Amino acid sequence: MELKTFTEMFSDKNALDFKKLKYKFGEENLKGYLDTLNESFYHKLPLLDFKGKPAVLLPSKVNMTVQLVKRLSATYSNEKYGIQAMEDEIISTLSIEQIDSSRESVRRILNGGAPETSNENKAYGIKRGLDFIAEPANKITEQNLYQLYMLAVGDFLDERDRLMPEHKYRHDEVYVVGQNIEHQGLSSQLLSQYMVNLIEYIRRDEGLDQVVKSIIIHYYLAYLHPYFDGNGRMARLIQLWYLVQIGYTSSLFIPFSAFINETKGLYYKAFTLVSYNSKVSEGLDVTPFVSYFVDNVLTKLQKRVEPTNALEVFNNLLQTGEITAKEKDLFHYVLSAYGTNEFSTKQLEGDYKNAAYATIRNFVLKLESKGLLFSQKYGNRVRYRVK
């Protein structure tokens, strides 16, 4: 095709929507456009579509920044999971699937309370799943994936949605239904083969940006739809799990699902667009989903990623002996419980439950003087947050 036409199509605001390109530029130009992408622009992935063809990604349409990757690669080796992030993650990942859960009930479960309703069971399941993936020793294997599914979802399902004994995946077909059938999961007879290939892909270093790879893993598990229920929850969990496994432990302090939930319509639209495009091109191009995730989730969470500078300052103070063991425990608790959210001394005293108010007060004032905490006055009240 003519270079001028290809350039116009490639730079078009709907460059990732093949139906709109076809309508605007015509069927013949769309064919030439897709042929050119296949020949020179696509990165082929070692993941197969339902016809056995490699899925593809268009890297030039993914706006991943070095700054974002650097922030996500921050390491928090002293904490398993941020309590505030866990609370937000549980509420949001269930909300995405229209499962009601109150913040009060989630907090009660996080504090050791037993679930009392079906929806609280689902919240408790996500907590168990997050605890499992936060443990670095739990490597991503097919058996561990099955264990994660049972912990997070499978143990709480009705009989009709449960996996059969000795089955790691569903034994029958499944459909995602909206006004029409939006998506049909992979044939149950092929699931074991495709899932083994996905696990191999996760464990292999193919040179692709690892954060982008985590998004592809998220999409692909949902695409295969290996379970009767809980596929969305598992897709979001496995993305976090992969990031933890490669050392991006800052992801444990980031409620990814909260950002997805804020743009839930666009999230589902991205899944749908990949499916519609595949009908036009007869190939699986995951770029629309990756592009959505970078633009609507990752770029927004930069403002809420834990401040690496504060950690560096704190570690320096710890090494010089200016921070006591008690203050170390308190600081780790603040990071885990509040992240970059504000808190009061009274709130910290009540939540921590292992220090007198005078100790809490002295701790907060000391860390503020060291530049680790920032205070904000609201009338007579003062609230703090990590800088």
Score class of each variant (00 low, 15 high):
2 E>Y: 02
274 V>S: 00
210 Q>S: 10
285 D>V: 11
122 K>Y: 11
9 M>H: 06
76 Y>H: 04
22 K>D: 14
61 K>L: 12
288 P>C: 02
340 T>A: 04
215 I>M: 13
118 S>Y: 11
97 E>R: 02
291 S>L: 04
145 L>T: 13
353 K>C: 05
4 K>H: 05
311 L>I: 14
163 L>V: 11
138 N>V: 02
64 M>T: 00
72 L>F: 04
290 V>N: 05
172 D>V: 09
289 F>Q: 10
39 E>V: 06
375 S>N: 09
183 H>C: 05
110 L>R: 03
119 N>H: 12
100 D>E: 15
371 G>Y: 07
226 P>V: 05
68 L>P: 01
22 K>A: 14
198 L>Q: 00
361 R>M: 05
84 Q>E: 08
161 D>A: 01
360 I>M: 07
309 N>I: 07
149 Y>R: 01
238 I>L: 06
133 I>S: 01
92 S>G: 04
99 I>D: 10
183 H>N: 06
340 T>N: 11
115 P>G: 07
56 V>K: 15
327 E>A: 01
55 A>Q: 02
248 Y>H: 14
63 N>D: 15
279 K>Y: 11
47 L>N: 05
385 R>Y: 06
66 V>Q: 15
251 S>D: 04
40 S>Q: 10
344 S>R: 10
180 N>Y: 05
14 N>H: 14
344 S>M: 02
2 E>L: 08
155 D>Q: 12
329 D>V: 00
111 N>F: 08
315 N>W: 07
175 Y>P: 00
304 R>C: 01
348 L>S: 03
58 L>I: 13
127 K>Q: 12
169 Y>H: 10
42 Y>I: 13
161 D>Y: 08
372 L>M: 05
161 D>H: 05
131 D>C: 04
272 T>S: 15
18 F>H: 08
270 A>I: 10
113 G>P: 09
152 A>D: 13
376 Q>P: 00
